[in-house]
Design a protein around this nucleic acid. Sequence first.
DNA 1: TTGACTGGTAGGAAATCTCCTACCTATGGT
DNA 2: ACCATAGGTAGGAGATTTCCTACCAGTCAA
Lengths: 99, 99
Amino acid sequence: MAIAHPARREVLRLLREDGPRPVVQLAEHFDMSRPSLSEHLKLLKDAGLVSERKVGRQRLYSLEPDRLQEFSDWLAPYERFWQTRLTGLAELLEAEDDD
Amino acid sequence: MAIAHPARREVLRLLREDGPRPVVQLAEHFDMSRPSLSEHLKLLKDAGLVSERKVGRQRLYSLEPDRLQEFSDWLAPYERFWQTRLTGLAELLEAEDDD
DNA sequence: TTGACTGGTAGGAAATCTCCTACCTATGGT
DNA sequence: ACCATAGGTAGGAGATTTCCTACCAGTCAA
């Protein structure tokens, strides 16, 4: 699973906070070797969570939000078990008829 | 990671949809042996995603939503990358001053 | 008490994951 | 052309996960 490894979650966080970044810059944040990070990036890319584009001799990795949306969608059915601020709002506005 | 394995996600789904269930009833949905499922349940319990209570000779497993909330919280910062109906609503109502 | 049922634990085999070093290609600068 | 930089791939070692078959303890019913 793509988001299972802490390093990959950290990559996602970095891309989210700092925007698109080349591999060496991402690698600065990790103790592991660059090839190992490359494999994590490949896994994230295969999972569709990030995309990659060439700029000169660099490859910029960017967050690809569509797949993260799937995690959100997966979590959505659990939301009725707790009261999030957002679902509270949604029910308030849309006045759904479920109890 | 607790939600990494498909079987464990399936357990969560079953508990969410059908409510608390004993082990044998959960096991019906899987090809694996019951002891293997027991280990998955232990992992889920250790992660705080489910709880277990004894009823007669059975142990009923229930969804424990607090920890799933953490996943939701983890996902929240990514929401500005896409437009969910809910964040759209939230911004509409709260009229936050960002951008 | 004896037997059936529920479900956890032990030990270990096999599969998967993670990480490394070595090596490769591609681009840009001089 | 030559060298440095960016970054992917290969092969393999070690750790972790997953799954199995025993086996054990607790509960209920006769």
